[in-house]
Computed example of a mutant assay.
Amino acid sequence: MLTYLLDVGDLADARFVVSPLNETALSLFHLNHVHGTAQHLTAWRREADACSDRYDRELVDALVSPSGKQIPDFLTPITAPSAGRPSFEVHLADLAATTPEAAHAELAELTEDGPPSPALARLLALDDPAPVIAEALAAYYDAAIAPVWPAVHRILESDVTHRGRELAIGGPARLFESLSPRVEWTRTGELSVDLACTKSSGRFSSGGRGLILMPSVFISRVTIAHDPRRTAPHIGYPARGSATLAESSPPVADDALRRLIGTAKADLLAALGEPAAVVDLARALGVSPSAISQSLKVLGANGIVESSRYGRRVLYRRTALGDALLHSRARM
């Protein structure tokens, strides 16, 4: 059990981090180590294997320990609470700037007291391995992650919107409860995480560094990878709706609803299973953003969808009336 001791300032500084580099690093667990709870990644893994000639597969495989339980901490940089949406390039620069001493120490831990693989041995022999790893991960991202990043990003942003609503409705207790049964919050400021595997356990002060929450489609349980003595309190957790990554066909509404409000608007309503932006909906349905905007305007004017701003993005969701229209036939 790991327990963070938080104060009011930490909760005020709490931020959700959506990071393409973090997702890139976490995806490495699934290339050779197939997890039973990751069926939604089957198609992605197949595509990542098919394009392995476009990146250094041997090197990226070496970044995961033989047990499949560990990657170096520096692959997932902890972001300052004020920067919840770091770009891939910004985080990659942070990774490349890892000191040789830190990189060598964390890479050596991957051996798990056994002999290093040939690729890992070559990394350990480098004077400064971090820039080489950053270059390899950039190629891996372009080949294996960039094609699915729009869908992954949609899932992560939808999750953040949902958690924000949980916080607004029920406060920190409801937010942390929504993450996992393994996360427990007390009014005395203790945030406890029950982990089957962690580098540290015990009670740790936040040190006034805030709190970072990281949703991911590439993890199946709550996790804390970094040493809590050296980094801000943080929790990685499975993003709500991750299973939708496996859905390749556009959502289609019931014929009765299509006849009632039109095919385009009905299918758009079906696509709003999670809050989404215009560009995400356009991509999912294979139509232009302007066509999506026109349909949303009509649906919104009739109280069928509503919108809210999150940062620079405007996300749309079904109202209670929209849900009733979409699901009324299923109850008949």
Rank of each mutant, 00 (worst) to 15 (best):
P118E: 09
A119W: 06
L120E: 03
A121H: 11
A121M: 06
A121V: 04
R122M: 08
R122S: 14
L124A: 13
A125C: 14
A125L: 10
A125I: 01
A125F: 05
A125Q: 09
L126T: 04
D127Q: 13
D127W: 07
P129N: 07
P129K: 07
P129A: 11
A130I: 00
A130N: 07
A130Q: 12
V132K: 11
V132M: 07
I133N: 11
A134N: 13
A136C: 09
L137H: 08
L137P: 15
A138T: 01
A139W: 06
A139E: 12
Y140I: 00
Y140C: 03
Y140D: 00
Y141H: 15
D142I: 00
D142K: 09
D142G: 07
A144I: 00
A146H: 03
A146T: 00
A146Y: 01
A146P: 09
P147D: 01
P147I: 00
V148I: 06
W149Q: 04
A151V: 08
A151Q: 12
E157K: 13
E157Y: 12
E157G: 11
S158F: 05
S158V: 11
D159H: 09
V160R: 12
T161D: 10
T161M: 10
H162E: 06
H162C: 12
R163C: 13
R163Y: 05
R163A: 14
L167Y: 11
L167M: 08
A168S: 04
A168K: 06
G170M: 00
G170Q: 01
G170L: 04
G170S: 04
G171N: 10
A173Y: 01
A173G: 13
L175F: 03
L175G: 10
L175Y: 02
F176L: 02
E177R: 11
E177C: 04
E177W: 02
E177N: 13
S178D: 06
S178T: 03
S180P: 12
S180Q: 03
R182T: 02
R182H: 10
V183C: 09
E184I: 07
W185I: 01
T186W: 06
T186C: 05
R187A: 10
G189W: 04
G189A: 02
E190C: 09
E190D: 15
S192Q: 15
S192E: 14
V193F: 04
V193H: 11
V193G: 01
L195A: 06
L195T: 01
T198V: 04
S201G: 13
G202M: 11
G202W: 03
R203W: 01
F204C: 14
F204P: 14
S205G: 15
S205A: 15
S206M: 11
S206T: 08
G207V: 03
G210Q: 07
G210C: 10
L211M: 14
L213R: 04
L213V: 05
L213A: 12
L213Q: 08
M214T: 09
V217F: 08
V217A: 14
F218E: 07
F218K: 12
I219Y: 11
S220W: 03
R221L: 05
R221C: 07
V222H: 06
V222L: 07
T223W: 05
I224L: 06
I224V: 09
I224R: 01
D227C: 09
D227E: 01
D227T: 01
